[in-house]
Amino acid sequence: MYVAVKGGEAAIDNAHRLLADRRRGDRSVPALTLDQIAEQLALGVDRVMSEGSLYDRRLAALAIKQARGDLIEAVFLVRAYRTTLPRFGYAEPVDTGAMLIERRVSACYKDLPGGQLLGPTFDYTHRLLDEELDGDAEVGPGRLRMGAEEPVSRIADILGAEGLIEEDLDPSPLDEPGDINQTPMEFPLSRAMRLQSLSRGDEGFLLALGYSTQRGYARSHPFAGEIRIGEVEVEVCSPELGFAVPVGRVQLTECQMVNQFKGSAKAPPQFTRGYGLIFGQSERKAMAMALCDRALRAEELGEDIVAPPQDQEFVISHCDNVQATGFVEHLKLPHYVDFQAELGLVRSMRAEHAEPRDESLPDMKEAAE
C-alpha cells in the first residue's frame, strides 16, 4: 500500500508552476493552437485517440499540448477524461466494406478491383530532412482531397469466394462481444476482448511483438492482404425510431493479414486471418495488431504455443502503456521504509559473511557428502 507523503505541498505547487512555465517555453515564440496540433501533428493525434480509446481530435490535441508532446502522458490524460463521460449506448458495428477509402494497398495482388490507392504515405519518401519546411512553405493552392468515390471490395472477399481463406463468421446477435471497460479481465479472453485490448495497446510494444513473430518466434508467415484507411459512418439504434441512424463519421485504419495454415482435423488447408482496426491513420500499429492477433489465435487453430506473442496473458497484461507507465514510474515514489528494511538485511548478511569461520568445524558441504 502506498500512502500520500505530507509536508511537501509547497514543493509540489512549485513543481506544477515550473512545469507550466516549461510547457509554454520561450514567450517570443507564438503559442501552439489546438488547430495547429490537430492539423499538422495529425498522426500523433491519431495515436492518442487510438490508445486513449476516445475519438475526439480536439481533446487529443489538448492532451498533447498539456503533455508537452509526451504521447503516453497524453494517452493517460485522455483515458482519465474518458472515465468522466456518461455511457448512453452502443453503436452498431461499422461496415469497413463501405469505407470511403483514402489509401488502400495490397501485397497479394498487383491489379485488384478498385485499384491500389497510395494516398498519403511515407513509404516512397527518401527520408531526407526537408529544409523548406523550416519556412513553413505552402504546398499548392489549398488542401488536397483525394480518394475513392465509391466503396471497393476487400481482398479477403476475393479469396473467400474461392474458399481459400477461413470464413469471417459474423457473431450471433445474441452473443455479447464483451467490453474491457466494463468487464473485469479474466483469462482466457474472447477474441473480441483481445482485439479491444490490442487496439488501444502501446504501438511500440505491439510492433516489437509483431516483429518477433516474423523472426521465428511464432512461425508466422504473413502477407499484407489489405491495408485501407478511410472514413466510415457510425450508426446508433434509436429505441424511439426502431432503426439505426447515422450520428457521424470516423477515420479508421484497417489491416487484414493473410497467413499460411496447413489445416487440421477440423479445417482444410487454407489461409487464416490476422486483424487490426484502430482510430485514425496508423497502418504500422494496425499491421502490428494484426500480426499479434494471428499469433494469439494459436490455441484456437491447434498450434503449439512456443513464443511470448502467442501467450495471451503475457501480451494483454503488458500491452497497455498507461498501466505499464504507472507501474514503472511508481518507483519514483518514496520507498523509504522498504529500502531501510533491505539496507538492514544487507548489512546483517555482510556482517555474517565477514565473520571468520572456525576451521575446527567441519565444512557443511563435506559433511553432507
Rank of each mutant, 00 (worst) to 15 (best):
residue 105 V to Q: 09
residue 125 T to F: 10
residue 96 T to L: 06
residue 121 T to I: 12
residue 85 L to P: 09
residue 131 E to Y: 09
residue 114 G to T: 02
residue 108 C to H: 12
residue 104 R to T: 05
residue 124 Y to W: 15
residue 103 R to Q: 15
residue 86 P to M: 02
residue 107 A to P: 02
residue 97 G to W: 02
residue 123 D to L: 14
residue 115 G to T: 09
residue 80 A to T: 09
residue 99 M to F: 01
residue 84 T to K: 00
residue 101 I to Y: 11
residue 110 K to T: 10
residue 111 D to W: 09
residue 135 G to A: 14
residue 106 S to H: 06
residue 119 G to M: 12
residue 79 R to T: 07
residue 106 S to Y: 07
residue 94 V to D: 00
residue 111 D to P: 01
residue 84 T to V: 01
residue 104 R to K: 05
residue 135 G to S: 12
residue 125 T to P: 07
residue 109 Y to P: 00
residue 111 D to Q: 13
residue 98 A to L: 10
residue 125 T to Y: 09
residue 82 R to T: 01
residue 124 Y to H: 15
residue 125 T to V: 04
residue 121 T to G: 02
residue 102 E to I: 09
residue 113 P to D: 05
residue 132 E to N: 12
residue 96 T to R: 08
residue 113 P to S: 07
residue 98 A to I: 05
residue 131 E to M: 04
residue 89 G to V: 11
residue 129 L to H: 03
residue 102 E to A: 04
residue 109 Y to E: 09
residue 121 T to D: 14
residue 113 P to E: 08
residue 125 T to D: 07
residue 136 D to R: 11
residue 103 R to A: 15
residue 99 M to L: 03
residue 85 L to R: 04
residue 123 D to V: 09
residue 104 R to H: 04
residue 124 Y to I: 10
residue 128 L to S: 04
residue 101 I to H: 07
residue 116 Q to C: 04
residue 133 L to P: 00
residue 98 A to S: 14
residue 100 L to K: 02
residue 96 T to C: 04
residue 117 L to H: 03
residue 102 E to H: 11
residue 91 A to V: 06
residue 117 L to A: 05
residue 132 E to M: 07
residue 92 E to D: 11
residue 109 Y to A: 15
residue 108 C to D: 08
residue 82 R to V: 00
residue 97 G to K: 05
residue 106 S to K: 10
residue 120 P to Q: 12
residue 108 C to N: 08
residue 81 Y to V: 01
residue 124 Y to L: 14
residue 123 D to E: 15
residue 134 D to F: 14
residue 134 D to R: 03
residue 123 D to P: 02
residue 104 R to D: 06
residue 108 C to T: 04
residue 84 T to F: 02
residue 102 E to N: 11
residue 134 D to H: 05
residue 83 T to N: 04
residue 104 R to Y: 08
residue 125 T to H: 05
residue 107 A to H: 11
residue 132 E to C: 08
residue 117 L to Y: 06
residue 122 F to L: 12
residue 106 S to L: 04
residue 78 V to I: 12
residue 100 L to Y: 04
residue 119 G to D: 09
residue 124 Y to E: 13
residue 132 E to Y: 04
residue 129 L to F: 15
residue 80 A to W: 02
residue 100 L to I: 10
residue 132 E to L: 10
residue 87 R to D: 01
residue 84 T to L: 05
residue 111 D to N: 13
residue 95 D to Y: 00
residue 135 G to T: 01
residue 101 I to P: 00
residue 92 E to G: 03
residue 98 A to W: 03
residue 86 P to K: 08
residue 129 L to N: 07
residue 89 G to F: 03
residue 87 R to E: 10
residue 106 S to V: 02
residue 116 Q to R: 02
residue 129 L to R: 10
residue 105 V to P: 00
residue 92 E to M: 13
residue 115 G to A: 12
residue 125 T to L: 09
residue 96 T to H: 05
